[in-house]
Design a protein around this nucleic acid. Structure first.
Length: 482
RNA sequence: CGGGGCGUAGCGCAGCCCGGUAGCGCACCUGGUUCGGGACCAGGGGGUCGGAGGUUCAAAUCCUCUCGCCCCGACCA
């Protein structure tokens, strides 16, 4: 082992990231069994391992959504066309990518239904019935659901025709309260994504050009993938009173006056799984952050002789008892695969820690742990395992975040003007380019036309961009993106 | 939706140009030996060539249409 030639990858048959990042991405998703293509265009099947990540995302985010006062509910999949059309910008934004139900059984429908591309319309309609008094506000609902957008170009997790997400929809009595909610949920997303997914993000405001269809303001968290492209990882929208006016969502205030509510909506989707893959993955495959990894530690028993097998399997019982519910572990005792095969398999699937248990370990009453991220080995005495393993997982979680942060910072450059932005991208640069921006639409359009990069956001935290401060300007981050 | 590429066994590919009804590697099954970084030997199963139509005595191979996937672009979580 230690005297063997240093290999950067033990995995065969996986394209290197540097050779073809897209291909690497598709292969990892397929080989790690996160998802598979289905017979329906742009629709993937999320396999148990991929869905396990989603379940962990759901669990950890749902806790935060509830902790901030929201309740879950469920609204219908189908939205009558007339409802969707009420908000002009909204329908203009989404109609081109709606799938329509036009027939029920053998009868054509009187009015066609859109398969929801998002639920503002149907929820707005219901809110108008439920909200009467200031005492009914704020109304804070969230739903976990699937939505469908007829995308021209799809990619597993990043852009699928059908995807899973949560969408929060809230109604408030005042604009200020509404804006506070928008920022509160943006912060929930930022904290969640950085803490649980170990993905550093820039939280900021979208430009008018990049805003959500029908929103007054859109805020976003922007992550950076290993290939230098940005990915919008979550959004929080200030909807103002647009939807309230068209859906007639009003309440009587303390003085008996009729007022329109102020609304927000916010969501993250299964795209986060794609972000996870592209933020942490390496040439050997996935590297999952322990907090969301379906399997945090895989135990590989090793034995040769029958008496070794009995001893090892007996020792595994002690390990199981010691670990209990402390970590999500899996014992791979399949006989048809060699230990070496299993090492490679679980590294490719991104399991954070591998625990090797062979005769030597049994003799020492210890297990040999190997980190996925660094391949660092450490023998852990059984007695210390219940303490040491969770600590090790926490170290890996932090290491992945630190590594991604360092990469992101290294790939964030500062320039002073439009020429600087163009020079960066035309010179083959990638990543984020921070620049003082006066709000000029022409500036934004030129970057898009010449460099293929868009304004990802105007970061809220500009502390790191102090050198770009300029009167009448805001710092803007440009990047090529997914 | 525009440009390009590709659909042959579960996966990766060859065969197609010069029609004669499929082959390789891995995977899979059985038996045995193995097992601390993708083990080895022997035996075995599996496809009618994305789909539809056409040309032909004969089509994976030629023609038309269609569906899907990948890459680049425009649009978007």
């Amino acid at each position: 082992m230690s005297d063997a030639p240093e290999k950067t990858s033990f995995v065969e048959d996986l394209t290197d990231q540097s050779d073809d990042f897209s291909r690497w991405y598709n292969e990892v998703i397929r080989k790690a069994q996160l998802a598979d293509n289905s017979p329906v265009k742009g629709c993937m099947v999320i396999r148990p391992y991929g869905y396990g990540i989603w379940e962990n995302i759901q669990r950890l985010l749902d806790k935060r959504i509830k902790a901030t006062g929201h309740q879950n509910a469920y609204f219908p999949l189908l939205i009558p066309e007339s409802l969707l059309q009420l908000e002009a910008d909204h329908v203009e934004g989404f109609a081109p990518e709606c799938a329509w139900v036009t027939q029920g059984g053998k009868e054509p429908l009187e009015e066609r239904y859109a398969i929801r591309p998002t639920s503002e319309a149907i929820i707005g309609h219901m809110y108008s019935k439920w909200i009467e008094s200031y005492r009914d506000l704020p109304l804070l609902l969230n739903q976990w659901a699937n939505v469908m957008r007829w995308e021209k170009r799809t990619r597993p997790f990043l852009r699928t025709s059908e995807f899973l997400w949560q969408e929060g929809h809230t109604a408030h009595a005042s604009e200020q309260e509404c804006r506070e909610e928008v920022m509160r949920m943006l912060e929930v997303y930022r904290e969640f994504v950085e803490t649980e997914l170990a993905i550093p993000v820039h939280a900021g405001k979208k430009s008018d050009a990049e805003r959500f269809a029908g929103a007054e303001d859109t805020f976003t968290i922007e992550a950076l993938m290993r290939d230098g492209k940005a990915l919008q990882a979550g959004t929080s929208h200030h909807l103002g009173q647009h939807f309230a006016k068209v859906f007639d969502i009003t309440y009587q205030d303390e003085t008996g006056k009729r007022q329109h509510v102020w609304q927000t909506s916010w969501g993250v989707s299964t795209r986060l799984i794609g972000a996870l893959v592209m933020t942490h993955g390496d040439d050997a495959g996935l590297r999952l952050p322990p907090n969301v990894a379906p399997i945090q530690a895989v135990i590989v028993p090793i034995y040769r002789k029958p008496e070794d097998k009995a001893a090892v399997l007996g020792f595994l019982e002690q390990i199981k008892a010691a670990l209990g519910e402390k970590v999500r572990f899996h014992i791979d005792d399949r006989d048809q695969y060699s230990p070496g095969w299993k090492y490679n398999e679980y590294e490719m699937r991104g399991v954070p820690v591998r625990l090797e248990v062979g005769p030597k370990d049994v003799a020492n009453s210890a297990v040999m742990s190997v980190r996925r991220d660094t391949r660092a080995k450490e023998s852990i005495p059984l007695a210390q395992l219940p303490e040491r393993l969770p600590a090790l997982l926490a170290e890996i979680q932090k290491a992945l975040f630190d590594q991604a942060s360092a990469f992101r910072d290294e790939k964030t450059v500062m320039v002073q003007d439009l020429a600087g932005v163009l020079a960066h991208f035309e010179g083959g640069g990638s990543g984020f380019v921070a620049v003082p921006w006066d709000g000029s639409v022409a500036f934004e359009a030129e970057v898009k036309a010449k460099a293929g990069a868009t304004l990802r956001c105007m970061p809220l935290d500009t502390s790191r961009f102090a050198s770009l401060e300029k009167p009448g300007h805001r710092v803007a981050l440009f990047a090529r993106s997914y």
